[in-house]
Design a protein around this nucleic acid. Structure first.
Length: 306
DNA sequence: CCAGGTCAAGGGAGT
DNA sequence: ACTCCCTTGACCTGG
């Protein structure tokens, strides 16, 4: 059964009035303008995050993915160094209270450059810092230390040796702080050569408690020999018994537009469903270009059917 | 104001 | 060897 529907990072409606949480800048600008400008953008992002979350509550949406761009270039400094840190913290505390009051579920999805299985130690170190920074944002929001508020990544590579890559990934996961690790999840990939739910279960989850996020669309490109139901069941049973597992749902743009030249992995504007849960309770993160519009549209379509 | 070229990162796949 | 893509397009410059 679908419990909560969520959407990722951008609110299309609010964005029209310049309310956005991912103001950033190019490297050159960061080098030229430094911390004061990073701080200015971060404060604006955080102020707008509050607006987005309030909008979510008013529209009965209690599940949202926070943009990784909320603190621009944050791998280059400590949050406390930002000139506006106290103002930022104040807003974050207000959001924290609101989120707790209205029982919102927040998550994050650090990008494809986060590679814990890399044989390159410099890459791993950067990844560890990036993941810890996501966790620090969650700390500012006073989010609980569990996969209720997940920080989700992919393994992202195989280095021609999945066994070794899985072992390296698990070894490096243990270098994270307990807080960060308590929030970490790992997701199945959208390419046949990469990581299926089956492989994540057998090679990764068997060695560490990190739960598996099941992505329906990705699964269709990388089944690992499991049916949709089997993969969903395998992934969701890796979650703590008292936390509703999160799954990701999207549909192919090429299917929606009936255009085979579009790569099949690309996401459609809206989604039609059905989202088959096979009786399993899940919170569904909807990934479509239309963001919250896709969620609202889909929710309306379910209500009409019932 | 707008279109379009450009933009941190690692790795894999396609040309 | 080069280019595109990925979580999530957005920044920024030149016209």
């Amino acid at each position: 059964m679908i419990r909560n529907l969520g959407y990722a990072c951008i609110n299309m409606h609010l964005q029209k009035s310049k309310i956005t949480t991912n103001r950033g800048m190019k490297r050159a600008t960061f080098l030229a303008k430094g911390l004061p400008y990073a701080s200015e953008l971060a404060l604006k992002n955080v102020i707008d995050l509050e607006k987005v979350i309030i909008w979510n509550e008013e529209n009965d949406i209690k599940f949202f993915r926070i943009s990784s761009d909320i603190f621009p270039w944050c791998s280059e400094y400590e949050f406390t160094q930002l000139p506006d840190y106290h103002k930022i913290k104040e807003v974050m505390e207000r959001i924290a209270y609101y989120v707790r009051l209205h029982k919102h579920r927040l998550s994050a999805h650090p990008g494809p450059f986060n590679l814990l299985a890399s044989p390159n130690e410099a890459v791993v170190k950067k990844t560890l810092i990036e993941l810890e920074n996501h966790s620090k944002v969650f700390d500012l929001l006073e989010l609980e230390e569990s996969v209720y508020n997940k920080i989700n990544i992919h393994i992202g590579a195989t280095y021609n040796n999945k066994e070794l890559a899985a072992n390296t990934w698990v070894k490096n996961v243990r270098r994270l702080s307990d807080t960060c690790l308590s929030r970490l999840t790992v997701e199945n990939d959208d390419k046949a050569s990469m990581w299926s739910v089956k492989e994540l279960y057998e090679m990764v989850h068997s060695q560490c408690s990190v739960p598996i996020v099941f992505d329906y669309h990705h699964h269709s490109f990388c089944t690992g020999g499991l049916s949709e139901f089997e993969a969903l069941q395998t992934a969701t049973k890796t979650w703590p018994y008292d936390i509703i597992p999160v799954v990701h749902y999207s549909e192919g743009k090429s299917v929606h537009l009936n255009d085979s030249t579009i790569r099949p992995q690309a996401h459609s504007e809206l989604i039609n469903g059905p989202i088959k849960t096979y009786g399993i309770n899940v919170d569904v993160m909807i990934e479509c270009k239309g963001k919250e519009q896709g969620l609202l549209n889909f929710r309306k379509s379910i209500l009409l059917k019932d």
